[in-house]
C-alpha cells in the first residue's frame, strides 16, 4: 500500500494523472501478474491490464475505502474483466491449466516460470487447497465452476478456499517474522564478530 494512498486516490478522483501513475506503478505489476496467470497470454494480458486501469480511472470515485482495500477492489475488477474477456473469446472453459511455452520463455515476465506457480509459493499447503485456490483466485473460476471442475461439493470448495486463505495469511506472517529473525541474527552475529 502506498504511503498517503487515500490522498493519492482523492487526487485521481480530481483527475490528476501523476497520482494515477503512482497507483499504476504500485499496482500494475500485481494486476499484470494475476492476469498473466489467468489468461496465460501476454498480449491479451496487456489488453486486460489496460482495461482494468481505465476502469480504475473512470470509476475511482465509486471506490469505498471503508469497504475494502484498494487492491481488493482492483482484484475484483481484474477478475471480472478477465472473465468477461475470456468469455467473449469463448475460451474460459477450455483454458489450459498449464502455462504455454511462449509464456514460460518470455524474459519480460518477472522471475522464472516456477516462481509464478502458486505451488511454489505455498508448497506447504495440501494439493487440494492449492487446486481450489488456483482456480478461484488465479483462474477466476466461480465457486460453482471450481466445484464442477474439481468434482467436489460447493460447500467443500468454500471451506477449502477459506482454509487456504487462512493458511496463506499465516504463511506470510511467518515468512515476515522469519525475515525479521534472520536480520536480528545477522545483526547479533555482526556485533559479536566486531565487538
Amino acid at each position: 500500500m502506498l504511503h498517503n494512498e487515500s490522498d493519492i486516490i482523492q487526487k485521481v478522483i480530481a483527475r490528476d494523472e501523476k497520482s494515477f501513475e503512482l497507483l499504476y506503478d504500485e499496482y500494475a505489476p500485481r494486476v499484470y501478474g494475476l492476469v498473466l496467470r489467468m489468461t496465460q497470454r501476454k498480449e491479451l494480458s496487456e489488453e486486460i491490464v489496460q482495461e482494468v486501469f481505465l476502469k480504475l480511472w473512470n470509476n475511482i470515485d465509486k471506490y469505498d475505502a471503508q469497504k475494502s482495500k484498494l487492491f481488493t477492489w482492483l482484484y475484483q475488477i481484474t477478475r471480472n474483466t478477465t472473465l468477461n474477456r475470456l468469455a467473449a473469446k469463448g475460451e474460459k472453459k477450455n483454458r489450459r491449466v498449464d502455462y504455454t511455452d511462449e509464456f514460460k520463455n518470455d524474459p519480460s515476465v518477472k522471475g522464472n516460470f516456477e516462481a509464478m506457480d502458486i505451488r511454489g509459493v505455498v508448497n506447504k499447503l495440501d494439493q487440494k487447497y492449492v487446486d481450489v485456490l488456483d482456480l478461484v483466485y488465479f483462474k477466476a473460476y466461480t465457486f460453482q465452476e471450481a466445484s464442477d471442475t474439481l468434482n467436489v461439493p460447493l460447500g467443500t470448495v468454500k471451506t477449502r478456499v477459506r482454509f487456504a486463505l487462512s493458511k496463506l495469511k499465516k504463511y506470510y506472517d511467518f515468512n515476515s517474522q522469519t525475515g525479521l529473525k534472520s536480520i536480528a541474527i545477522i545483526l547479533i552475529g555482526m556485533l559479536y564478530h566486531y565487538g
Binding site: 494486476v31 481488493t72 509464478m116 483466485y137 488465479f138 486463505l165 487462512s166 496463506l168 495469511k169
Partner: peptide, 16 residues
Amino acid sequence: YQEAINKMAEENASLP
C-alpha cells in the same frame, strides 16, 4: 483474506 490475496499477488507480480 484481503491481506492474503494481496500477498499472493505480490508474490506473483510481474513488471508490465
